[in-house]
Write a protein that binds this DNA or RNA. Structure first.
Length: 577
RNA sequence: GCUCCGGUAGCUCAGCUGGACAGAGCAACGGUUUCCUAAACCGUAGGUCGCGGGUUCAAAUCCCGCCCGGGGUACCA
């Protein structure tokens, strides 16, 4: 009856549901959450069930009486030590320590660490990062990239076929301005040393000119029209802008260990725009208004969405609809997830709504996050207070290098740098991933580059210490295989650690389901705290044979889960830091 | 005006599909290195969960109103 591949808590939830069904055959249990959840306070057991109180409300009776009836007719599963009623009607559950140990051994034997195959090879497209061509990435761009990439990794781990698509902003009116500006005042030297910065300078200057000078504006428009009609020269220039930009972006992506399956920018869908808008008209969803073609969504509380501008051009709404239609036909995804900042919420609501009306079957999800701001102001190119993404990464590595040099002065330079890279980049990523994405985020160097406390280096440090233990054990006890000894949990720190370890699959699942990598980060921090406490307070290399091997196994499993969990966030785990 | 977020310890943030005395990190204070990496551990101190009502056995969490901060609100994406 005991199924060690599914978690003890999953089994308990099923058991509670069954028992309630037996005790209260007439109650409508479907509406009541019967799941068993981890206890917040260990004095109340390992896990608890709150269903008695919910059910009592449903039945309009005393919650303690409900819990009492449950407990009287309950046949405890063999892995449960005891259950108790407490407070207003909590059912507190204590697991048998031997069962906990058994679950750990099962996890250790399972290559997937107990992760369920939720995706079953269904396709999910994740549209993230998506920067604009000819604009450098600044620290505002890191959130979409890092959060999107973590979701990518989480979904893959759960058996989904993920297509990561970088939907570049590579088409639009700005290219007329850039082409004209390029012809008139491009600095070829600057284009070689800092291409994207120079392209941005050209764009900004040209844009400002267009606001003051009508002739300039007309000339830019003419260049745009030429580009759109396929003029060879302009097309070549446009392509070179994309290549220049991508070569720089790819350098950043490489540093961040982020990769995409597709780089389909907006231009990819260009020749499908007219057809898409025709479809909207044919379905009676779009109508003329002030010269533009619009979808009136007032009735649904979503204002009005323009799908074709009065000058005949298309905009992001039409492009995004065409993109969904195209992706749906080509890949038949179960879901498309977009990761962008909060400013685009209305846009996504509008175009999701339109997609539904034209019969797109795909589940569309907008994962949005709060804008990054400085303590004193919002970022703005005009204010000149933007922090370039590369500068941030450089600073992170530099600060990490200082710490490495201080703590490992005898290590050779190359090794120090390699560790500083992994630690610095990890710290940056973790800062973004560990917060509720929807909070307002205030950027401070102190927080972004935190190297202690709740930070990536704290987790990496825990991992590195285990790696060291592993090596020392192998050196001191050659020929002994710890896996031939059973896991036995005697110390309270061991038991606490065990309870964290078995919850790994649930953490991954929740993080993916809620589209929140912060759930994973929280879990890993919790786990590391439990491990650090164990490490500090329980001896292992100096323990007797038996407990020693059991503890080495606990270390090994913790290391495996830390490594896997951090990998799901795109964070490296050096063997030594 | 309408609308979407945020307002929790000195600072930065968790918790928010209601649950048991509100959690962590940083900063502060006090301990722990003949011992497995002190980027660590153990402890002390620190909070009217923006304000006011309401629903409930139970509200930081749900509902209503208000205040403060940020975003969006037809031809930029």
């Amino acid at each position: 009856m005991k199924n060690t591949t599914s978690s003890l808590e999953t089994q308990l939830s099923a058991w509670c549901a069954e028992t309630f069904a037996v005790c209260f055959p007439d109650a409508d249990l479907a509406a009541i959450p019967l799941a068993v959840i981890p206890s917040k306070n260990e004095q109340f057991g390992d896990c608890q069930c709150e269903a008695a109180m919910k059910l009592a409300k449903e039945l309009k009776t005393n919650p303690r009486a409900v819990a009492q009836k449950f407990i009287e007719s309950a046949v405890l599963p063999d892995f449960v030590e005891k259950i108790e009623i407490a407070g207003p009607g909590f059912i507190n559950i204590w697991l048998k320590t031997t069962a906990l140990a058994g679950q750990l051994e099962a996890m250790q034997a399972d290559k997937k660490l107990g992760l369920p195959n939720l995706g079953n090879s269904r396709t999910v497209i994740i549209d993230y990062s998506s920067p604009n061509v000819a604009k450098p990435m600044h620290i505002g761009h890191i959130r979409s990239t890092v959060i999107g990439n973590a979701l990518d990794r989480l979904y893959r781990a759960l058996g989904y076929n993920v297509i990561a698509d970088n939907h570049l902003g590579d088409w639009g009116t700005q290219f007329g301005l850039i082409i004209l500006g390029y012809r008139e005042f491009a600095d070829q030297d600057a284009l070689k040393t800092a291409p994207v910065e120079e392209l941005e300078r050209i764009y900004v200057k040209s844009y400002n000119l267009s606001k003051e000078d009508e002739t300039w504006r007309d000339r830019a428009k003419a260049e745009l029209v030429k580009l759109q009609k396929g003029d060879t020269e302009n097309l070549a220039l446009w392509k070179s802008f994309i290549e220049l930009t991508l070569s720089e972006f790819n350098r950043i992506y490489k540093r961040l260990d982020v990769s995409f399956d597709l780089y389909r920018g907006e231009s990819f869908y260009n020749d499908q725009l007219a057809g898409t808008v025709d479809l909207l008209k044919a379905k009676g969803l779009a109508s003329e208004s002030d010269g533009a073609l619009v979808c009136d969504l007032e009735a649904d509380g979503l204002n009005v969405a323009i799908v074709r501008k009065s000058d005949g051009g298309y905009n992001y709404t039409s492009t995004d609809i065409a993109t969904v239609v195209s992706r749906t036909e080509e890949f038949h995804p179960a879901e498309i997830i977009y990761v962008t900042d909060e400013r685009q919420q209305l846009h996504f609501k509008q175009f999701f709504h339109i997609c539904k009306k034209i019969g797109v079957p795909t589940k569309l999800t907008h994962v949005w996050f709060g804008l990054m701001r400085l303590p004193e102001a919002t970022f703005s190119t005009r204010e000149g207070n933007v922090i370039k993404l590369e500068a941030l990464l450089n600073e992170a590595e530099a600060r990490a290098l200082e710490v490495v040099k201080a703590s490992s002065p005898n290590m050779d330079d190359a090794k120090q740098k390699e560790i500083a890279r992994a630690v610095g980049i990890g710290a940056i990523k973790y800062t973004d991933l560990s917060q509720n994405p929807q909070s307002l985020v205030t950027f401070t160097w102190e927080k972004a580059l935190a190297m202690d406390g709740n930070s990536a280096p704290y987790l990496q440090y825990a991992y590195a210490r285990i790696a060291s233990v592993r090596d020392k054990y192998a050196a001191q006890f050659p020929g002994i295989n710890p896996d031939e000894f059973p896991i036995i949990l005697t110390e309270e720190q061991e038991r606490r650690l065990a309870l964290k370890l078995i919850r790994f699959p649930a953490a991954v699942e929740t993080a993916a389901k809620l589209h929140r990598p912060s759930v994973m980060a929280d879990y890993l921090f919790d786990l590391s705290q439990a491990y650090s406490s164990f490490y500090q307070n329980v001896p292992f290399l100096k323990a007797d044979e038996g407990p020693r091997e059991s503890r080495i196994r606990l270390c090994a499993l913790t290391a495996t889960i830390l490594k896997k969990g951090l990998a799901l966030l795109g964070i490296e785990t050096p063997e030594r830091i």
